[in-house]
Simulated scan of single mutants.
Amino acid sequence: MPQALPKTVDTAQIRHLREADPQIRLIDVRAPGEFASSHIPGSYNVPLHLLREHREELTAQHGDPVVLVCASGGRAEQARTLLESAGLDRLSVLRGGITGWEQDGGELNRGRGTWDMERQVRLVAGLLVLTAVVASTAYEPLKWIAGFVGAGLAFAAVSNTCAMSRVLGLLPRNRTPSTDGRALLGALTGGNGPRG
């Protein structure tokens, strides 16, 4: 019987796992633009939104261990919950995500891409709050937009979900036009998906 993976792994553990089991799959659940910007060599990009859209099709055709990766760990945890509910096992999450990987000296392939989703959310939230506060000097009820954004950010922190990141993920810059969802899912479910 295959050995169970810990719920989270760090950079050193992934290096050890890759040496011990070359079949380990690193699945990066960030948006394609984020993946294009930087990713762990040999990882596959299967965005979280695709996992949600194709949840009913998720069945593992392999016994390979899977480590889920995102920017800091939040989206990878959501992906693990989703995949476990679909019946997949031998799943782990990279603790600290790409940020932790890089801080621990992990190698990254870099390219042209977009800002990571957390940075995009901070920019949009900051601009909304700033605009609402400035505009409220002319029309006071606009201050409630800033309150709404603050409440949304607080809810996102408590629930570990983010509606704004889902909306931003739909923007053309964060999507790859030629993305074939089934081909990408092949990286997770046993086929050969595109590798970075």
Score class of each variant (00 low, 15 high):
Ser37Arg: 09
Ile14Asn: 07
Arg18Val: 14
Ala36Pro: 04
Thr99Tyr: 10
His54Gly: 04
Leu26Cys: 07
Thr131Trp: 04
Arg52Ile: 12
Val66Ile: 15
Glu118Asn: 13
Leu94Arg: 02
Phe35Pro: 01
His54Leu: 12
Gln78Asn: 12
Glu118Tyr: 05
Gly100Val: 04
Val29Asn: 07
Pro65Ser: 11
Ala20Gln: 15
Asp10Pro: 13
Ala146Pro: 02
Glu140Thr: 15
His62Met: 08
Glu107Gly: 09
Ile24Ala: 15
Ser72Lys: 11
Glu77Trp: 01
Met117Phe: 12
Thr59Ile: 11
Gly74Asp: 04
His39Met: 07
Arg18Ala: 15
Gly126Leu: 04
Ser136Met: 08
Asp21Cys: 09
Ala31Gln: 05
Asp21Ala: 13
Leu51Val: 04
Gly63Trp: 08
Ala20Ser: 14
Leu26Glu: 09
Gly97Gln: 06
Arg25Lys: 12
Val133Glu: 11
Gly100Asn: 04
Met117Gly: 03
Pro141Asn: 15
Ser38Gln: 15
Thr8Pro: 01
Ser37Asp: 12
Pro41Asp: 08
Arg110Thr: 11
Arg122Ser: 08
Gly42Val: 08
Asp28Cys: 03
Pro47Leu: 08
Gly106Trp: 10
Ala36Asn: 10
Val121Ser: 05
Val69Phe: 10
Glu77Met: 06
Tyr139Glu: 09
Leu26Gly: 05
Ala60Cys: 02
Pro141Lys: 14
Pro47Trp: 05
Val129Asn: 06
Gly63Cys: 02
Pro41His: 07
Glu34Leu: 00
Arg119Ala: 06
Gly100Tyr: 09
Arg30Leu: 02
Val134Ile: 15
Thr81Pro: 01
Trp101Glu: 11
Thr8Cys: 04
Thr11Val: 11
Arg112Ile: 14
Leu94Ser: 04
Gly87Pro: 08
Ala138Tyr: 13
Leu108Asp: 11
Val133Tyr: 10
Ala86Ile: 06
Ser72Asp: 02
Glu118Thr: 02
Leu50Lys: 03
